[in-house]
Computed example of a mutant assay.
Amino acid sequence: MAYADQQMSGNRITAFIIVALLHLVLGYALVTGLAYEGVKQIMKKVTTIDIKKDEPKKEPPPPPKKVAAPPPIVAPPPKINVSVAPPPVQTVVTPPPLPPPPIIAPPAPVPAPPPPRFQPKSATPKGNPANWATTNDYPSRALREEREGTTGFRVTVGPDGRVTSCDVTSSSGSSDLDDATCANVTRRARFTPAMDGEGNPTSGSYSNRIRWVIPKD
């Protein structure tokens, strides 16, 4: 046992000596700079450990957030008044039917007048109407100017058969010839007066024409 202890102590001493020598050599090398590069390479090989760090995987960027469109503006529904009073009930009174209108009898026809006792007659001239105006009655001025024409006339005859008025119905174109017509007829014409339905003489009328012609010598 003592031998083993001595052997072990001797090994320790030897190890210490070797370590001390190594320190001395390293210290000398450091001081003098000899074998600096070699030592550096050795130290680099001994001490450098390439440790590759696990690079974190780049995660893809998150997708852009979708912005939700704002909800449409909805007007609130109008308030409905549920408690609406029912419309008033109007009672319509139907009036009784009107009585039928009275039946009016048509008026009695007016009796026709009795037939006349005598047939009415119009005024008729007495004698020849051509004698009412002669060539001697030709207006002198119209005769000198050689004016001719025909005058139409209408006379009113009184109950006595005489002419009460005279009107020119169509002119001859000369006023003196028209005036001579009425003047001569009023002075010379005589009539049987008109008769009414009772046979009494009454006023009447008569129409005719006078042609004024220049006499030939």
Results as ranks from 00 to 15, higher is better:
Met1Ser: 15
Ala2Phe: 14
Tyr3Lys: 15
Ala4Val: 11
Gly10Asn: 13
Gly10Leu: 12
Ala15Trp: 09
Ala15Phe: 07
Ala15Lys: 12
Ile17Gln: 09
Ile18Cys: 06
Leu22Tyr: 09
Leu24Val: 14
Leu24Ile: 14
Val25Cys: 07
Gly27Thr: 11
Tyr28Ala: 12
Leu30Val: 05
Val31Arg: 01
Gly33Glu: 08
Val39Phe: 13
Thr47Val: 15
Thr48Met: 04
Ile49Arg: 14
Ile49Tyr: 10
Lys52Val: 13
Asp54Met: 02
Glu55Pro: 05
Glu55Gln: 06
Pro56Lys: 10
Pro56Ser: 05
Lys57His: 02
Lys58Ser: 07
Lys58Met: 04
Pro64Thr: 09
Lys66Gly: 10
Pro71Thr: 09
Pro72Ile: 07
Pro72Thr: 07
Pro72Val: 06
Ile73Gly: 06
Ile73Val: 12
Ile73Met: 06
Val74His: 01
Val82Ser: 12
Ser83Ala: 10
Ser83Thr: 15
Pro86Asp: 11
Thr91Cys: 05
Thr94Cys: 06
Pro99Trp: 03
Pro99Ser: 10
Ile103Leu: 14
Ile104Arg: 09
Ala105Pro: 12
Pro107Cys: 05
Pro111Met: 04
Pro113Ala: 12
Pro120Leu: 02
Pro125Glu: 06
Pro129Ser: 07
Pro129Leu: 05
Pro129Gly: 06
Trp132Ile: 09
Asn136Ile: 08
Asp137Trp: 04
Leu143Pro: 00
Glu145Gln: 14
Glu145Asn: 15
Glu146Arg: 15
Glu148Arg: 15
Thr150Pro: 02
Val155Asn: 01
Val155Ser: 00
Val157His: 01
Gly158Lys: 02
Val163Thr: 13
Val163Pro: 04
Cys166Ser: 13
Ser174Gln: 10
Ser174Asp: 13
Ser174Met: 08
Leu177Ile: 15
Asp179Gln: 14
Ala180Asp: 02
Cys182Ser: 03
Arg187Phe: 02
Phe191Ser: 01
Pro193Trp: 00
Ala194Gln: 00
Met195Glu: 03
Gly197Met: 04
Gly197Ala: 03
Glu198Arg: 07
Glu198Cys: 00
Glu198Thr: 07
Pro201Cys: 01
Tyr206His: 06
Tyr206Thr: 04
Ser207His: 03
Ile210Glu: 02
